[in-house]
Amino acid sequence: MSPRNTMTGAAAARRHILDRGVAVASVEGLRAMSIARLADEVGMSKAGLIGPFKSKETLQLSILQRAAELITEIMLEPASAAAPGRARLRALTEGWIRYIAAEPERFPGGCLFTTATFEYDALDGPVHDAILNGMTLWRTYLADATREAAELGELPEGADPGQLAFELMGLFTGFNMAVHLFRDGDAEERLWRGVERLLGV
């Protein structure tokens, strides 16, 4: 086998491990997920799975990075293609719904970062910092989108973009809970009603 084929095979195996890691962690939690559980999921030995990553912590950080790549693909890239302002905020809402409710293979348990936040918010260390960084980027993206909408005059008069971003983040987190904890069949409709109220639609 040529070195290139070996490298391609190793990259594909790593991607498979991380994709299954994202799926398992979205359900079971990043901290709670065992090496044995993930190894069984991908059909490898524990030593074979952890080998390329050297430690569980490095594997966890890699899973978070892969989750961020998938979220960008599912939600942020389509939203970035929408016109700034209210259209982009609506595209973000549509993307969040796809991410939470329409990705049963990749995110069967909903938002991995939300699950990880509850696991790590009171802890210290590199995994906590990676989660904080990811959630900060998400909050900043929402804040930028609401500020653009305000600058375009597409928010209700007197609306505070920062407060609106805060409330949108709360609605999105609540939607994740409504879908995966409460199994609320009206969750999507409730989310849209909340978003449209904030946008003054």
Rank of each mutant, 00 (worst) to 15 (best):
A25P: 07
G162T: 02
G85P: 03
P108Y: 08
S45A: 08
M169N: 13
G158C: 07
S55C: 04
L171F: 05
T93P: 02
G85N: 06
A116I: 09
L61D: 02
G125P: 06
L155S: 01
G134Q: 10
E119I: 05
A150R: 13
E69L: 08
P84Q: 00
P161T: 04
N5D: 14
I35F: 01
A87F: 07
A143Y: 06
A165D: 03
Y99R: 10
E157T: 13
V127L: 03
D160Q: 00
E94I: 07
R14T: 06
L38N: 00
T114I: 12
D40T: 12
I63N: 00
W138E: 11
T114F: 09
S26T: 05
F166I: 03
L70E: 10
R106A: 15
P84A: 07
A23R: 02
A32G: 14
L168W: 08
V179A: 06
G174L: 03
W96S: 04
L70W: 02
A130E: 08
E57L: 10
R139M: 13
T136M: 11
L112D: 03
F166H: 11
T6S: 13
E196A: 03
R20M: 09
M44N: 05
P126R: 12
Y141V: 12
L199S: 04
T114A: 11
S45I: 02
A67T: 03
Y141G: 08
I71A: 12
L49Q: 01
W138Q: 09
L199Q: 06
R106I: 11
I131N: 03
G158M: 10
Y141R: 13
R31D: 13
S62D: 14
R14D: 01
A68W: 04
S26K: 06
H128N: 09
L152K: 05
Q163S: 13
R88T: 09
L18A: 07
F53G: 00
L164K: 04
R147K: 12
L49F: 00
T140C: 08
E154Q: 14
F113W: 08
G162R: 05
A67G: 11
S62Y: 01
T6V: 14
I74Q: 07
G194W: 01
A11S: 12
G29L: 09
R4L: 15
R15K: 14
S80M: 11
A101C: 11
L64H: 01
H128C: 11
H16I: 06
G174P: 05
T93C: 10
E94R: 15
E167S: 09
E188A: 15
T117G: 12
D40P: 04
F166V: 04
L171K: 02
D144P: 01
E105M: 11
V27N: 04
A159I: 04
T115K: 15
V201G: 15
L171A: 02
E148A: 15
I97M: 11
T58G: 12
R4D: 10
M135G: 08
F172M: 12
L59Y: 04
M7V: 14
